[in-house]
Nucleic acid binder design. Structure first.
Lengths: 394, 394
DNA sequence: ATAGTTATTTTTATCTTGCAAATAAGATAG
DNA sequence: CTATCTTATTTGCAAGATAAAAATAACTAT
């Protein structure tokens, strides 16, 4: 394993990039106060980013009080690009995102993803089409990001659990896409997690420490952010809120997981459509969904007290009226002293959330590999200690 | 704010201390592999800890294969001591803990804590009694730690929410104890959080990244550990699982929070006693409690997938039979693919958990202040930037 | 022009930790 | 009982990050 010499230094440049992406034209001194570093450090790190072409100096900004003007800094939007893919059950969205986080091209393709081979072909065609349409230097493509409705284990590099796309389960997706698309860097991520990162860096979570993104769709999932970092847990399986119990009494519907009363079985888009098919009025069905969802969200908020809970996904896009019902239902279930500490927000990024989150991940990897001057240093022999290697405390 | 120059260096010594506390006689080379650092670094850090008297060299351990024997290292148990207090509703436990994490004296005092003034007097008497009984150098007392059944906000330094000890709500406990006991360093912590840290460092969580401690008592609370760190969230209010909804249908009992179906209102020790008072058989009552608790635990496990869930508190101590029921009930509600990834454990530390967690916090603070050679450096004037200070991104 | 103000850079020093080589302290073969 | 092998620890040296202070740059106001 390559040990980086300066962990904090890298974290620094990453944070500078994230800040400049959302708040362009910040100066070195402003960055210094925001990141709680000394001006000298910022001079240093900014120079590195300038030298390697990630950022540029823009306009000097005079402050009314006099003194030397601050030199604004901004990302070079054209430095690199990422291709990102959001895989739904019946639709795929493929986008090209520039380094500044702007979506420069987007294709929305209605096509069932159940059959994985066909799905990947469709996706690849869209990627090729998109890339060719864009007159971007070949070497400026930093990589491919794919968001899927399932749990992705970064250790085994397989899809661990994908109830709504069963054929994708167990697949080595990264490898598959690498081979079929010819793109070297491929990042796979769970859809809710990718969206959570998108909202964290570009949307509702920009100025927040702890937040949760909740995806309301055919499946229900969540991405949890603590201290501005995604909580992954063992093999990435944090955030499966679809199987929180919200109705343990009336055992009418059995969830795909085999139990009764799971949130997903009574408040997903599938459940909503079932209510309607059974003859329930839209209003009544939405109320039922809002009631169950509010129960779950209330429990989660009481338990984790995030500053922001972002709701996204097809359910709310299809039935915008649901929003008000959901807010009311959730409000009624939050502890008094948390009432004004948690904000419930409708995803400002919408379908763009996972695409932007993935793009930022791709860029981050590119910047890091760019800074990795030591290409694959091997640990000295001294480190290998057969007696203690099996212990693995941390 | 004092900026530490070497964050990683400090983290290093802290980790060394935690490792040596649980696994005495580890050598420098073993620590190096465990902490993924070079032998040279360990020589350095270990020397600092030796020079300042925190640790000692113990016995050389010959490995069968030949070569220079490893020099065992251990904490100097007698280096410092902490007084820690666990405040219950009707009992207080006061303990003296040595640097090695051994409880060297313990007083359990049955006395209602409802009246805060009386409570603090009782606690102080016990502290004085304990300290005087122990022939420890005055300067070796590193500080006082207090665990309370309520939410403690470290920013405002007050008790934010304390439903079971209403008189303690709003109190500046740290200041109160500092003045009344004469001990300078006072750390206040929520009881479930303190216990979680205790189990993390000394008990069921020693070799684990993510865990949850669940306190089953008159109140129900939890402490959440992610990546070996306590998740606090905004004003420390993470972990209030007492108000997770587990029964939204039968609206019989109203919870103290005003709602119906909260875990705490149907599965706390109070609820259990109520079932018994209403004429339910013990077996039936325990089954009801296990059922509700299992629902909540299942939801939480499915959602957060911690490696370990530790259960502690009076309910399980009073009714040990409940354990099996609870395990069964929870098992039935965990997603298949998580079944073998989450361990449900009965707290091995029991009432000692919060006492040890607090002690470690006190020691950590002492070591850090010991290493703080710069006493209160003030940020240079350059840092103050009126234009951006109000933004507070991170 | 001169003083005052704010931003940025340079200089110097310190701290941490990595790598490589040296040294310490044994075990084992002959 | 010595020479060699092995493993643990220390030392010397270098690199990188970043803090503190001083210097410099680029303005405004007088």
């Amino acid at each position: 394993m390559t040990m980086s010499h300066n962990v904090s230094g890298r974290a620094g440049t990453t944070q500078i990039v994230h800040l400049l992406r959302n708040y362009p034209h910040l100066s070195r001194s402003e960055l210094a106060t925001l990141l709680r570093a000394t001006p000298a450090t910022l001079t240093h790190q900014v120079r590195m980013l300038l030298d390697t072409g990630w950022i540029r100096e823009t306009t000097a900004r005079r402050s009314g009080t006099g003194g030397r003007p601050r030199m604004g800094l901004s990302l070079d939007n054209d430095a690199v690009y990422a291709v990102t893919v959001s895989v739904g059950l019946t639709t795929v969205v493929v986008a090209a995102v520039d380094f500044g986080g702007h979506i420069v091209a987007l294709r929305e393709i209605p096509h069932s993803m159940s059959a994985i081979a066909q799905g990947i072909t469709v996706i690849n065609d869209a990627i090729q089409d998109l890339v060719e349409s864009l007159a971007v230097d070949r070497q400026k493509w930093a990589g491919l990001g794919v968001a899927i409705p399932g749990i992705w284990d970064p250790v085994s590099k397989t899809v661990v659990f994908s109830p709504n796309l069963p054929e994708w389960s167990g697949m080595k997706l990264g490898e598959l896409f690498r081979r079929s698309s010819g793109i070297e860097t491929v990042i796979v991520e769970n859809d809710a997690d990718a969206s959570a990162l998108g909202e964290l860096w570009f949307g509702a979570g920009r100025e927040v420490q702890d937040m949760m993104y909740v995806l309301c769709d055919v499946g229900i999932g969540a991405g949890l952010i603590v201290n501005r970092e995604l909580v992954r847990g063992q093999d990435n399986s944090v955030g499966e809120i679809g199987h929180v119990s919200v109705n343990s009494c009336t055992g009418e519907y059995r969830c795909g997981c085999g139990r009764v009363g799971c949130l997903e079985s009574v408040a997903s888009l599938t459940a909503l459509n079932r209510y309607l098919a059974e003859g329930m009025t839209t209003e009544a069905a939405l109320n039922v969904v809002a009631d169950y969802f509010g129960t779950a969200l209330g429990s989660i908020i009481n338990m984790l007290s995030p500053q922001v809970v972002v709701l996204g996904g097809a359910t709310l896009q299809t039935y915008p009226v649901l929003w008000t019902l959901l807010v009311q239902s959730t409000r009624g279930r939050i502890l008094q002293h948390l009432m004004h500490k948690t904000q419930l927000i409708l995803s400002p990024l919408g379908v763009h959330a996972p695409l932007l989150g993935l793009a930022a991940l791709v860029f981050e990897q590119r910047i890091q590999s760019d800074q990795d001057t030591h290409p694959g240093t091997v640990s000295p022999a001294q480190w290998a200690n057969p007696d203690t290697d099996s212990l693995k405390f941390y």
